[in-house]
Each structure stands twice: as C-alpha cells, then as structure tokens.
Design a binder for these strands. Structure first.
Lengths: 341, 341
DNA sequence: CTGAAAGCGCTAACAT
DNA sequence: ATGTTAGCGCTTTCAG
C-alpha cells in the first residue's frame, strides 16, 4: 500500500521532470513560476496527497507561523470569546495558534511559557494567572525580540502592548451604581490585588465612595480567589459582620451567582437587603434569579484587537515589546440584582 | 549582543571539543555517555541558554511527541476536566498536547483535523461536534496508522478506541427517577440525534417509559441544539403543548438552568408543576434555585483513561484504530429540581 | 522562468 | 565512549 510514505516535493519534481525548487515555488504560488507549470504541480500535489512538511520549512525559514496564547483559564465565556477573536485574525493572516492554559497557577504559566518558547512561536499573547508575581519566565521572549502582548490580566513591570478595559472606570461605575441605589455599606469581594484588574477595580470602588463622601472601610474589602466555593466563604464573612452590608460588588459573575444563592439560603433578599453587582457579563449572570447586574466587556473585540497588533508587529518588525496600552470599551449592564428603585 | 543567534549542538560541541553526536547523546541522557562528559555538556547548555530545536529533531525522527485534541467546545467544566486529565498523563509520558476546538461545527472540526494532520501529531483524541455527519476528515489519520481515539461524542462508523459513559443507562436512570417522582408526561429536550450521546440517552428515556408502561409520545421529544437561548425556545414549546408536562429531562445543565428560569417566569413551579433533570453536573447545576438534579460523570478520569490508552498505543504500536469501548461510571445526583416527595 | 546546490539542526547507523 | 557521516524536506541564493 502507498499509505506509509509521505509524498515530498522531490517525488512531485521527479514525476513532472522538474526541479524541487520549481515545485516548491509553485506550491508557494511564487509569481515567478509559469502558470501552466504551477497548475501541473498543484494538480499533482492534490492527486498524490502531498502535504507540506512544516518542520522542514520551519527549520529552513526559522519561522513557525504560529502564535502562542497563554490564558489563565479556559472555562469562561470571556476567554473563549477572546480566543475566537484571536483565531479569526490569526487564521486570516496565516498563523496557527497554540493554546496553553495556566489554570490560574504561576507554575503552569511558567511551564507553558517555556513550552511555547521551545516551540519557537513567532509571538505570544498572554493573560496572567492570579498569583503570577515574578515575570522572569517571559524574559526569554523579550531577549529574542519575540513579540509578547498581554490582554486583560497584565503587568506594567513588563514593557508590552496590552489590551485592557478601563478597570478603574468599571469599578467606579459598578460602585457608583450601588450607591445610587441607596447602598451605604458596600462589600467589595475581589481577588489577588497583585493583578491590575483587581487593584484597578478596587481603585474605582474607592473613587466612587470618596466622590459620594462614603467612608472607605478596609474590612469591607474581601480578597479571595474565585474557586467554586468562594461565594460561600464570602457570604459567611458577610454574615459575620457586625453590621450587615447593603451592597455587594463581586468582580466575578460566577462568584456573584453563588453569593446570591447563599444569601438567599440565609434568608437575605437580593436586591432588597443586599444589592449585588458582578463582573464579566458571563452567561450565568442571565441565568440566576435575580439576573445579575454586571460589567460587560467585549472579549471577541479584545481578541481581534490584540491579534491585529501582534500580526502588525510580526509584519513590520516594529514596536515589538514596547509599552503601549489599548483600552477597549466596557459598560455597566443593570439587571434585577441591584435594582431597588 | 548575543541574544540573536540560537545556540546549537554544534556550538556546544565546538566549545567542548566534542562531536555534535556526543553532545546530542548527552542532552538526551543517553546512558552510553560518560557521566563527566554529560555533566559538562549539560552545564554548558544551561550556561549558553541552549534550547533544542524541535523542528530539526522532528524532521529527523519523524515524530513530534505531540498529541492533538479536538474538542467540541472549551467553555464547559466537563471539557476542561477532560483536558486536565489528558494533560496529566500526556505530560508524564513526554507528550505535548495541542488543543483545537470546533465550536460545535463540522466545518471547524474539519479544519482542525487537517491542521493537526499537517502538524503531524503522533496521535489524536477527539470529541465530535453536534453536526458532524461525514467522518471523512479523520480518514487521513487512519490511513497513516496514526492513533485516533474518541471520548464522549463518538461515532461507531469509525473503528477506534472510545471512552464513554453508558448513556443509555444514564438516560434511563434520569427518566426512571422522574417517573418515580410521579411524572407521567415527561418532555425530553435533547440535541442532534446523530450523536451517540443523545440517541443513547433517548433510548434510555424510552426504555424507562416502556418499563413503567408509560406511552412514548414523539411530540414530547424536543430536538434542538444547546445554544444560549435554546432554553427559552424549549419552554415556549412546552407552553404551547395542549397538556402541560409534569417532567422535563434536558440533556444539558446549562440549558436546564435556563429552562428553569423561563418556567419560573411563566409562573410554573419547579419541581411541583414540572420536575427537572439535567445532565453533566456542571457548576451551574449547583448555582441556580432549585439546584438541578443531574447526571455526573468523571471528566478527569475520562481524560486520563483515554490519554493512557493513546500513550499505550503509541508505545506498543498495538491496537491502533481498532474498535474498543471503555465505559467510565456515571451516576444520578438527586437535587431539589426534581424532588417532589 | 527554471535548476543546482547548500544548509537549517538534529539523530542514528556505522565506524573506531 | 566518542566520532563520522549522511540525510530528514524544504527554501533560497546564485547561475543560467
């Protein structure tokens, strides 16, 4: 059977009495090749089931036409939307993408970075894990002038293009909305403040309080991760407070949903007793009762935007690994969980 | 600066007055090499920041040490659990994994299959999209004796190792449970019956009805996809029925959650008026009120199991692309959405 | 417009 | 235990 041997350009060349060079050029649609010759080559290639050997090509050209994407998780609408956006742009520009997920741990993020480096991706797009502190594992890319870009979870200690939303503004809008609903004691449940997204949202929270001359009470800021049962923990912490808060701003819809369920169990009415705002506009925010007021931001657009930047850097070799921030729009979506008026 | 040139084994060899072959062997921990030599090589390699060039190696060895995974979606706890399981086993066995998601469309599944084939993965693990009908895009793997294995969404028309749950039994248990709760008119909301998982669950549904001498009414079987607003559609269909059903078995927790929300909006009480059972034990099933009765099945175990099989096939070159079914356990988890007694 | 030839970096016979 | 050598398949000067 003919199934075991791979067809190479040499096989095609021999059969057509051409040189491998010509075949190679024809397959690459090099305009220098005679149209007839090209057609003959392409026809035979399909007929023989030729597939280009990327390794040989990569080895020769020192390029992989592949971009690596490191995300902090996979299981989220936001992330899958970003990936879809990246994919669209990358595919169109002739790049494959390699998805690696760190599952919110630096350890895996490090491994992934090394892997992608060894896979010699032409560029990297990343969103940091919760606990990433030291960014040394990204240094090799910088050193070799491989474009490295961040979206959403970024870090200013590293010079890079970053695509983000205005998290200060988003945190501000969320908190202001709660204040306007009459809330005076607003709990802010968030995650590792090392991450820009969380520290910025906290800043927005503070700004809104200040602007409405409400006191900032550190005890109302609850920093956890967003594991499955964190919502339960948060509600426990809330119930243990001397004074029950009347507002809750959780920077994660999933967690907000669990909080609402737990509050209900404790016979606390949402939004009457505690008004709740989440973050991300995840599907779950439209799935629980009451629907969750949240911050929407355009994952697909973020993905497209960052991929376009990367592709541009790859094409032009310009602005690689330079500090540059692109802000995509975000907005508050008001739903039942916070409406008291 | 020294950052631009990649270090090769030739550079190391030259600096140590050794042959490239020796360096290669040392780096691969080939036992034939003198321990001192090996140490010298490894030390210099780290010192010089040597990284192996996988393309050269792949080109030479005709192996990639990479396994491709095609999943029908990314945004699900089940899938991410499976991926985690696959990753554990693959990493330990020295394989990288390449994740491709088809987003429930054959078109992307085809592209992904071609991509992985061109990337020359050593093996493939896949779960089919909703609408995959023709499996021709997997034929190239079979032809070249590249191990191809399926989990969850499989198809018996292709000879392959498959790791699944007993979907007939699961459908049977779910339906039987509803019947035992007193339900007599049970709607079964499911998806494309071309997919084994859905046709088998339907078979289980029928079996349970038959066993309890309840009539099978085709009008009660609603076949849709599981997009975000499908739940709404299902409830519309239910509300349009002459007689309101008293049970609803939806083969997807997300969709079941939306159904419950929509039923509530229509002032139908769950479980009192309609008892609901979902499928997958997704986090959302514990997040909505009432919590959803569902079928749990072990994603991580499935992932580990299928990866182990693949690795074994790769090592032994045996049982590649032979029909073989492995069933992992699944179970009914009873929660409030179906409890009427 | 096409061909010849070299080389990308690595590995595996086959020697020594 | 180490070295020599050839070649994996492709691209790209350089020549014609």
């Amino acid at each position: 059977m003919t199934t075991n041997k791979d067809i190479t350009i040499y096989d095609l060349a021999e059969e057509l009495n051409l040189s491998p060079a010509t075949v190679s050029r024809a397959l690459k649609n090099n305009p220098v090749i005679n149209a007839d010759t090209r057609k003959k080559v392409l026809d035979l290639a399909t007929k023989r089931g030729y597939r280009s050997n990327a390794f040989a090509s990569n080895l020769r050209t020192q390029k992989t036409n592949t971009i690596g994407v490191i995300v902090h998780e996979l299981n989220s609408y936001f992330i899958t939307a970003v990936l879809a956006g990246i994919e669209e742009v990358a595919t169109e520009a002739g790049y494959d993408i390699l998805i690696a997920h760190s599952n919110e741990t630096v350890a895996k993020e490090r491994t992934n970075a090394h892997n992608l480096f060894n896979k010699r991706v032409d560029g990297v797009i990343a969103s940091l894990a919760y606990d990433t502190d030291d960014l040394a594992h990204f240094a090799p890319f910088i050193k070799k002038h491989i474009p490295l870009l961040f979206f959403d979870r970024t870090d200013n200690s590293i010079a890079a293009t970053q695509v983000v939303i205005d998290n200060v503004e988003a945190g501000y809008q969320a908190t202001k909305h709660l204040i306007e609903q009459g809330c005076k004691h607003i709990v802010h449940a968030t995650a590792n403040l090392k991450r820009n997204v969380y520290s910025d949202r906290l800043a927005g929270y503070k700004k809104a309080l200040l602007e409405h001359t409400l006191p900032y009470n550190e005890a109302l800021v609850l920093v956890n991760d967003f594991k499955e049962d964190t919502g339960k923990l948060i509600v426990e912490q809330i119930l243990a407070m001397k004074q029950l808060p009347d507002g809750l701003f959780v920077t994660n819809d999933f967690c907000a949903a669990v909080c609402i369920a737990e509050l209900k169990k404790a016979s606390i009415k949402v939004p009457k007793d505690i008004a709740v705002v989440g973050f991300n506009n995840d599907v779950v925010s439209r799935m629980v009762e009451p629907n969750i007021t949240t911050i929407n931001y355009p994952g697909k657009l973020m993905g497209r935007t960052i991929a376009e930047r990367l592709v541009l850097q790859l094409k032009t070799k310009k602005n690689i690994n330079k500090q540059d921030q692109i802000i995509v729009p975000s907005e508050l979506i008001v739903r039942a969980s916070s409406k008291r008026t």
